[in-house]
Design a protein around this nucleic acid. Structure first.
Lengths: 340, 340
DNA sequence: AAATGACATGACACCGGTGTCAGAATGGGG
DNA sequence: CCCCATTCTGACACCGGTGTCATGTCATTT
C-alpha cells in the first residue's frame, strides 16, 4: 500500500506518465475526459506524488530555512508557528537553524547548511536580519531570503517588521501620562536593531513632553534576564531613584520586578515597570507587566509567503515586498501612578 | 560555482561515476591511487553530493519528524535542541510538527505529514509517546519511531525517559524533611503519563514517611499557568491551609506563587512551593522555585540517535533501546521551614 | 604456464518525477 | 473533401545519485 507511483497511475488510467504529470500540475491541454480518468486513478490508488523526485527534476528542495539566535524561547516558538503555517500553505518544509551570530564561523556555518540541504530560501530573524555580511553573502550565492523585523528597510529584499520605535514611544508616553518624569531605560543587545529603535522611541517621547533626558537613568542590558538583574540593581540603587523603569524586553522587566521585590519596593505604587514583547512571563508574574505585543507570527508568515511567491513567480520583476505592521500596547498591573 | 555534480567529478578525475560514488560512500574495493584522485577532485571542484538525488535513489528523505503538543515553549525548545543536534550528527534534517492530540483528525494529520514529506522516522514527545492509537497506526504503516518520556516501557520501540516518579518522590521527601506534613499536590494534564507518575511519587513519599494522605489537598490542573491559578485559589483558601504545595510543573507552581502573593503569604516562610521541569520561569521569579531538572535535550538526542541507528543498521535484529536517565533536584528559595 | 580467486572498474538500468519535441487527433474554413 | 491550425498525447532524455552485474587486472597456487 501507498506504493502508487506515477507509472502505476499511468498504467491504471491507460495513459502515459507525462499525461499524469500534466494532470498533477494542472497544465492546460488535457481533455476533460482524460483528466477525469486520471483523477479517478489518483483516488483509486490513493496516489501522492513523491516530493523528492519532483525536487530532483526541478533542482529544488522545497525547503525553507529559518535562522535564529534569540534567547527568548517564546519568540522562537512564535516565529516557528508563523513559519510553519506559511510553509504548510505552500507545501514547503521548514528547516529550523539556530546558530550564533558571533564568530567568523557564521558564514561557513550557513554555507554548509545551504550545501547540505539545498534549501530554496531563508528567513532571517533578528539579529540576522541586519547582518550586512550575511546579506551580502546570500546575495552573492543567489539564495533568496526574507527579513523579519529588520532595522533598516534599505536592503532590496523582502522585509516585514513592526514599528518598534512608535511602540516604544507610546509606552513611554503612557508612563509620562501617569505622572512619571524620572523614567529609567534598560537597553537591549547592541547587535539587535530593535535596541536602537526602542531607545529612540523612548528619547522621542521624552523630548516631545519636554522631559529632560538623564544619561544616568540608562543602562545597557542584552535582553537576558540576568543582564536585566544587573541593570536593575544599578538603577534602583541610584541616589535619586526613578519612579519608573522601561526595559527593552519582558525578561529584563521581570528581572527589575525581582530586584524591586528584594528591595521591598511595591509595584506599581513605588515603582512602575514596563517591558516589551508580551512574552508569557509578562502575565506569569505578579503584578503582570505592561508591555508591547508584536504580531510575530504574522510577520514571519508574510515574510515566507512573499519569499516563496517571489522565487516561484514567472515574472522576473515582482516588486519587493516591504511591510510594517502595528504593534499593540498591553496595559497590565505593573504600571500606575506613584503613590507613597 | 557550486555546480559540481557526480558526473563532472568523474570526468575531472578520469573515472566512472560509479567509482566516484564508491569513494563518496567509503565502499571497499577502490585502489588507493584512484581514491586519492577522486578525493582531490572533490576538493578542486568543491563538490558536495546532492542529498535529494541520493534520497531518490534510496527511497529515503533523510528527514526525521518531531511531534509535539506542549504548552511549554522552553520544553519544546529543549526538545528541538537535542533533536537538531542528533540530526546534525547523522546528516539528517529535522522537521518539526506541532499538532493537537485531541480529535480524530490526529491520525489523518500524521498520515498527511508522512505522505507529504516521506519522512524516515518520527520522534514522539509527550503526550504522543503514550498514545496507543498513534503507536498502532505507525506500526501499521511501518514508520519507525522513538518515544521520549513515555509512561510505559512495554511498547517494543525505542524509549528514553527520566525517572519522574523517583524525582517526585525525592522532592516530596525534601518538603517532608523541612517539617511539612500538609503538602498539597496539583496534578497535570490527564493525557500526560508524567501526571500519573509524579502523583505516584508524591503518594509513595507520604506513605513511606507515615503521613496521612488527604484527598482535599489534591487538585487537578492541566500544566497551564491558568489552571495552576485556579487550583492555587482552591487550595490556599481551604480552612486548614497546607504549609507546602507541590505543583506538577513550574508554570503551575509560578501560579501558586502569584496567588500566594495576592494573599500576602510569604514564601517560603508561610508557604513552601515546589515545581517540576526547571523551566526558565523557575529562576525568573522571586523567590526562585525548587524544582526538578530533567535531561530533556539528552533524552531527545539519544532517542533520535538510536532511531536512525536502528533503521540504518544492516542487522535486522538490533536490540530495542530503552533507557532511563537521572533527573536532578534543584533547591532554590521557594522551599523552607514553616516559621511564623 | 595455466587455472584460480580477490580486487578494481565501468556500463547500464533505475529511483519518480519533469521538459522537449514530434506526431496524432480534432475541428473549422475554403 | 482536403488542408491547416489547434489541441492533445506519448516517446524519450534528463535531474544526480545508487545497485547489479559483467569484465578486466593482478597475484597466488599448482
Amino acid at each position: 500500500m501507498s506504493k502508487a507511483t506515477i507509472n502505476s497511475v499511468a498504467k491504471y488510467a491507460g495513459v502515459s506518465k507525462k499525461t499524469v504529470s500534466r494532470v498533477l500540475n494542472e497544465e492546460p491541454n488535457v481533455s476533460s475526459a482524460t483528466r477525469e480518468k486520471v483523477q479517478q486513478a489518483f483516488k483509486d490508488l490513493d496516489y501522492r506524488p513523491n516530493p523528492i523526485a519532483r525536487g530532483l527534476a526541478h533542482n529544488r528542495s522545497f525547503i525553507i530555512g529559518c535562522l535564529y539566535d534569540n534567547p527568548s524561547k517564546s519568540y522562537i516558538t512564535r516565529v516557528q508557528t508563523g513559519a510553519l503555517s506559511a510553509c504548510h500553505d505552500k507545501s514547503y518544509n521548514l528547516l529550523i537553524h539556530p546558530c550564533e551570530l558571533r564568530g567568523q564561523a557564521l558564514l561557513d556555518n550557513i554555507d554548509a547548511l545551504i550545501r547540505r540541504t539545498r534549501l530554496d530560501g531563508l528567513v532571517l530573524t533578528p539579529p540576522f536580519s541586519d547582518q550586512p555580511d550575511l546579506l551580502a553573502f546570500l546575495k552573492n550565492k543567489s539564495i533568496p531570503y526574507a527579513r523579519v523585523a529588520p532595522g533598516e528597510l534599505e536592503d532590496d529584499s523582502i522585509s516585514i517588521r513592526s514599528n518598534d520605535e512608535q511602540a516604544a514611544f507610546e509606552i513611554t508616553e503612557l508612563l509620562i501620562s501617569l505622572g512619571h518624569t524620572d523614567i529609567a531605560f534598560i537597553k537591549g543587545h547592541p547587535d539587535h536593531s530593535s535596541t536602537t529603535l526602542r531607545f529612540s522611541g523612548y528619547l522621542k517621547a521624552l523630548e516631545k513632553n519636554n522631559i529632560e533626558f538623564k544619561p544616568e537613568l540608562v543602562d545597557e542590558g542584552n535582553f537576558s534576564y540576568h543582564s536585566g538583574e544587573d541593570s536593575a540593581r544599578k538603577i534602583l540603587n541610584l541616589k535619586v531613584r526613578p519612579s519608573a523603569v522601561f526595559a527593552s524586553n519582558d525578561y529584563m522587566a521581570a528581572a527589575v520586578l525581582k530586584v524591586a521585590s528584594q528591595l521591598t519596593l511595591k509595584v506599581p505604587e513605588q515603582l512602575s515597570i514596563a517591558g516589551f514583547d508580551n512574552a508569557p512571563i509578562a502575565r506569569h508574574i505578579w503584578p503582570g507587566l505592561t508591555t508591547i505585543a508584536q504580531p510575530v507570527e504574522k510577520m514571519t508568515y508574510i515574510a515566507i509567503n512573499k519569499l516563496i511567491e517571489q522565487f516561484t513567480s514567472q515574472e522576473e520583476a515582482l516588486p519587493i515586498h516591504k511591510e510594517t505592521l502595528e504593534a499593540q500596547l498591553i496595559n497590565r498591573e505593573s504600571t500606575g501612578r506613584f503613590s507613597e
